[in-house]
Nucleic acid binder design. Structure first.
Length: 648
RNA sequence: GCCGACGUAGCUCAGGGGUAGAGCGUUUCCUUGGUAAGGAAGAGGUCACGGGUUCAAUUCCCGUCGUUGGCUCCA
């Protein structure tokens, strides 16, 4: 029996007997590692920790502290979930059960049976019993014919379909306890590592993600090596719920909805509207410096406008239906996009290459009939305002214009304290050309323009195939909400198609007419969604420059109201947005309520302050800044604002 | 749009076949209080809406609307 050379990530090379397992390698390093090792990778292949190693290679061992380790842990847990479900609900059909970012799920066809929250405890109980049995996960190779007959016997058409798409010789089953599942591999050594198990949710999910397919039940769960970690995770979820923008929006009186006005149509309350206005003027200022011009367009446009743009063919069916007028055959649409209007603005005059780029910006409110099941607070609504702009430029200008827009977008994100966004380049799906308009050559150009710009700016980005808009590829900035759901905020799109459809031209230096290229861009995306995500990120503690009320004056008693009023006026003269609370309540209560309203500064005035002509300042959270002069306070606020809000 | 859950006072929620309750908020009065809730009294509900079962429905059943967790979609 020979030996093999196993190299480890730290560069060390272990010589081990041929057929050693990753677990044995771990043991040779340390007992502790052997206890904690969950899964392994040999060269580029995910393997079991009990898989014998037969050749030289590079071994990586994973524990719970690696994402790969968690993935194996959760994927293994989904097998346990499946076994528990199969035992409790005989006759169900299992489909797929992957690990996800936080936990795992298993998609199951329950037939006539439905499950709901009431059933979770007994599923958890059974799953934990299985886990405690410390059953080993064992992989075995199965021929395609055997695999097919196994699942045909079970009358599981889903697994049969999966296997039919696999190559013979590349099919493995995984066994543990009495349970067998089609599986590619990547498991923990045995079920005993799973000490805590929670079924989180059950929801409908289409087979293979296609709404034309049957709907399965997706059972979500999460598991941990320690009970304490589950408890902590659940506490984290509870905390996240407190940052839900729908809850904070109500508490901070920013926005509301009315069934009478209509689903998905937000009503901005005065404080929310003031906040929006501030966001708008912030961006307008930056855009002015960046050479944008504001335009204004109406909320409706003739149907023909959207037939020209292609929006009608693509989205007409799923939109608010055309508005009729007294005149026969005249139809208007609520605008779902601003770009067609802006194209017509561009068309209003002839342009020379010397005039370009033209950058038309508008806070344009658009209406889309989003599916009812999609509506969600302010993040997905049917009427919303885009901080939209369209840049019309020559091919020569495209790269630098695109990069300037990236700069502007990053400026917006950083001014609002977003540092954990991801960039995503959305390109077309080459296998579904029917989803897109325009020719391949222009798509090619547009896609590479975006990727080059992203590279040039040193953005870390992922490429998402099939996520492009129907008229062009895009670069999106994605941010997660409190519950970990990812949302698109800013977007930048390159478009060769609308200029063609609207027959936009400019005269080049050769005295010939040329086609401009369009960049669609919105650094916030929509004001509604942006405010929602910002609320969840800040928990309502907005940056000082943005927050509706920066300070509240709290007189200690009614005797100090006159002075408090003077203080308020003075704060307003310092351009501090302040309120006064002169209700007949104790200071303690006023402070408590100001704290809950998340007002950054409480300005308390009583006997001492009247005499000394000062104010006692308390910061949100409790820090006492002591008695200071109003001018000092004014300086403190402006210094703080200037440190977060740089100019563009 | 699909699958599941939910809908009781402005908000958060309890209750349950015999037409309703708490806390906070609100109103009035007392109190003039120094860094996270001072006290008292009062007002406020077609129990989402529409049907059905029942002597009786807010409660049970069905439908509609809305909200919500997912799926699908997202110009």
């Amino acid at each position: 029996m020979g030996t093999i050379q196993i190299s480890l990530p730290d560069g060390a090379v272990k010589e081990m007997p041929k057929g050693s397992t990753p677990l044995e390698v771990a043991k040779s390093i340390s007992e502790g590692l052997a206890r904690n090792v969950i899964s392994a990778k040999y060269d580029e292949n995910t393997i079991e920790v009990t898989t014998p190693l037969e050749t030289d290679g590079k071994l990586t061992l994973f524990t719970w502290n690696n994402d790969e380790g968690k993935k194996a842990f959760w994927h293994s847990s989904s097998h346990v979930l499946a076994q528990a479900l199969q035992e409790l609900y005989p006759g169900i059909k299992l489909t797929i059960g992957p690990a996800i970012e936080n936990g795992f799920y298993y998609d199951v066809d329950f037939g006539e049976h439905t499950i709901s929250e009431k059933d979770f405890p007994q599923i958890e109980k059974r799953a934990l019993e299985i886990a405690r049995g410390k059953h080993d996960f064992k992989m075995r190779e199965v021929s395609k014919a055997d695999a097919l007959s196994h699942y045909k016997e079970e009358r599981n058409e889903y697994k049969v379909e999966l296997i039919e798409n696999l190559e013979d010789g590349d099919i493995t089953f995984c066994d543990h306890s009495t349970f067998t599942d089609l599986c590619r591999g990547g498991h923990i050594p045995n079920t005993g590592m799973i000490k805590a198990f929670k079924v989180l949710n059950a929801a409908g999910a289409y087979w293979r993600g296609d709404e034309n397919n049957p709907q399965l039940t997706r059972v979500y769960g999460i598991s941990f090596p320690k009970q304490k970690e589950l408890t902590q995770y659940l506490e984290l979820l509870e905390e996240a719920k407190k940052r839900d923008h729908r809850k904070l929006g109500r508490e901070l009186e920013l926005f509301t909805f009315s069934q009478k006005v209509g689903q998905g149509l937000p009503l901005w309350l005065p404080k929310g509207a003031a906040l929006r206005e501030r966001l708008e003027s912030f961006l307008k200022k930056a855009q002015r410096k960046a050479g944008y011009e504001m335009v204004v367009t109406p909320h409706i446009g003739q149907k023909e406008l959207y037939v020209t743009s292609g929006h009608y063919a693509k989205y007409g069916e799923d939109s608010f239906q055309p508005i009729q007028t007294p005149k026969d055959e005249e139809e208007f649409l609520l605008k779902p996009m601003n770009c067609p209007h802006h194209c017509e603005i561009y068309k209003a005059s002839p342009w020379s290459y010397k005039d370009l780029p033209k950058r038309y910006a508008e806070f344009g409110t658009v209406y889309r009939y989003e599916q009812s099941g999609e509506l969600h607070g302010l993040t997905r609504v049917r009427g919303f305002t885009q901080d939209d702009a369209h840049i019309f430029c020559t091919p020569d200008q495209l790269a630098s214009e695109f990069k300037n827009v990236i700069d502007l977008s990053l400026y917006v994100l950083s001014s609002l304290g977003f540092d954990n966004y991801t960039a995503q380049v959305s390109v077309r799906d080459l296998e579904k050309p029917e989803k897109y308009i325009g020719n391949a050559e222009n798509w090619e150009k547009a896609e590479s323009a975006i990727i080059e710009a992203a590279e040039d700016k040193g953005l870390k980005y992922s490429i998402e195939e099939g996520e492009a808009a129907f008229y062009g590829p895009k670069l999106d900035f994605m941010v997660k909400d409190a519950l970990g759901r990812s949302w698109q905020l800013g977007t930048i799109q390159v478009d060769y198609n609308l200029p063609e459809r609207f027959d936009l031209t400019y005269k080049g230096s050769d005295n010939e007419l040329h086609r401009p290229i369009m960049i669609h861009r919105a650094p916030f995306g929509s004001l509604e969604r942006f405010v929602a995500i910002l609320l969840e990120h800040t928990g309502g503690n907005f940056p000082l420059w943005l927050i509706p009320t920066q300070a509240i004056v709290l007189p200690v008693s009614e005797k100090h109201e006159n002075y408090a009023q003077k203080v308020l006026n003075s704060l307003e003269n310092h351009e501090i947005r302040a309120l006064i609370d002169n209700r007949n309540e104790t200071v303690g209560k006023k402070i408590r309520e100001a704290e809950m309203q998340k007002i950054p500064f409480m300005v308390i005035v009583g006997e001492r302050e009247v005499e000394e002509e000062t104010i006692a300042v308390r910061r949100h959270g409790g820090e006492d800044l002591g008695s200071i002069k109003i001018d000092t306070f004014g300086n403190l606020i402006s210094t703080e604002i200037n440190s977060t809000l740089k100019s563009f």
